[in-house]
Simulated assay, not measured.
Amino acid sequence: MAVLSEEQTMLRDMARDWTSNESPVNAWRKVRDADDGAGFDASVYGEMAQMGWSGIVVPEAYGGSDFGWLSLGLVIEELGKTVTASPLAASALAASAIALGGSDEQKQKWLPGIASGEIVATLAVDEGPRHDPDAIKASVSGGKLSGAKAFVAEGDSAGLFVVAAADGLYLVAGDAAGVSRSRRHLTDFRSHAEVSFDSADADKLAGGGDDLLGKVLDRARVLAAAEMLGMAGQAFETTLAYLKQRVQFGQVLATFQALQHRMANLYSDIELMRSAVEAGLAAIDSGGDTRQAAILAKVKANEVGHLMSREMVQLHGGIGMTDEYDAGFYLKRMRVLEAMWGNTAALRDRFATLNGY
Results as ranks from 00 to 15, higher is better:
127 E>G: 06
111 L>A: 12
118 E>I: 03
123 L>W: 03
123 L>I: 03
156 D>I: 00
149 K>R: 15
86 S>R: 02
52 G>V: 08
132 D>L: 02
168 G>P: 07
47 E>M: 13
65 S>E: 14
77 E>I: 01
152 V>I: 08
139 S>R: 14
108 Q>E: 15
182 S>Q: 15
84 T>K: 02
132 D>A: 11
175 D>P: 03
137 K>D: 12
79 L>V: 03
176 A>V: 01
166 A>H: 08
176 A>C: 08
129 P>F: 07
177 A>E: 15
149 K>Q: 11
182 S>H: 11
94 A>S: 13
93 L>D: 06
118 E>D: 14
98 I>W: 04
123 L>A: 01
161 F>M: 04
157 S>V: 11
156 D>A: 14
110 W>I: 07
174 G>V: 02
131 H>T: 09
147 G>Q: 06
115 A>W: 05
93 L>K: 03
96 S>E: 14
153 A>S: 15
173 A>K: 09
81 K>N: 00
103 S>G: 11
146 S>D: 03
144 K>I: 01
82 T>N: 15
48 M>L: 14
125 V>W: 06
172 V>D: 00
56 I>F: 08
113 G>T: 02
183 R>W: 05
176 A>Y: 05
58 V>S: 06
69 W>M: 10
101 G>E: 10
82 T>P: 01
69 W>N: 14
138 A>L: 08
170 Y>K: 09
179 V>L: 03
112 P>W: 09
